[in-house]
Write a protein that binds this DNA or RNA. Structure first.
Lengths: 129, 129
DNA sequence: GCCCAAAATAGAATAATTCTAATTCTTATT
DNA sequence: AATAAGAATTAGAATTATTCTATTTTGGGC
């Protein structure tokens, strides 16, 4: 059941490319609806998630982030945890075949070192030793 | 630097197939060393993780779990969140090629419906309508 | 045996999320 | 238009997971 807030929240999640946390969605929503409560954001995110309208992404040690359901995967920086979209072919067929049982979906994160963290490492390598 | 506790904790994580949470590791460790503090468990898990001796697994809405570093992937039940090991070939080569940049590793979870949850669904389907 | 650094401890603090109970909003019905 | 029922929203408390802080303990080299 789409209400005023759930519509707004869905729109925010779908249009932003930035994988927002519940807190960030709350802040963004506050700018439009200053009276909204954080619990409402959590309630709606959970309802949308249960209804399969949004995706939840979880990286160790970080609050959950929310994303649209368009099929895509993610790059995660090993160092700073930054999350970036990446478009790979759908691997469901391949994986089902490999694992030998039906799967509903999958969650794939490629771990890499983002540009900033690479530079930072190099700078440290120069000053440290 | 391996201390009494970090050795025990590493052993627990490596020998258990059950992807324990910090809390569960704490409980298990307590049985052997009743004086240990929860903070010590977290400290050691973090140190072991930073040293690359253990893996951290994160599923949305659940506390982080810990696992050995032997290369393998996971099945996650969509319904109850249960985590099971699965052995697939190493996809690093394939994925690097597909994404066109070097990756350090990857984290792959196959979402499925475990036996119990399938049964539960069928039972509900019979009584509900 | 003493010293030092690292590790461990207890408990407070913080962060993320859920829960509770009261209130407000919708909608269908009279 | 008034009303009742049910869902959504709210504020704030409660809970959970984790980190931080300050103090104490431990263990290896001198």
């Amino acid at each position: 059941m789409m209400t005023k807030y759930s519509k707004e929240i869905l729109r925010l999640v779908e249009t932003s490319r930035s994988h927002m946390t519940a807190e960030q969605i709350f802040e963004a929503l506050r700018r439009i609806c200053p009276r909204v409560a954080l619990a409402t954001v959590y309630n709606n995110l959970n309802r949308l998630w249960e209804a399969g309208r949004i995706r939840k992404i979880s990286v160790e040690g970080m609050p959950d982030r929310y994303d649209c359901t368009r099929r895509h995967d993610h790059l995660v920086c090993k160092e700073c945890g930054k999350l970036v979209d990446v478009n790979l072919d759908d691997l469901t067929q391949l994986l089902e075949q490999k694992v030998g049982m039906p799967i509903l979906s999958y969650d794939l994160k490629l771990v890499y070192l983002c540009q900033e963290c690479q530079s930072k490492r190099q700078a440290e390598a120069l000053t440290e030793p």
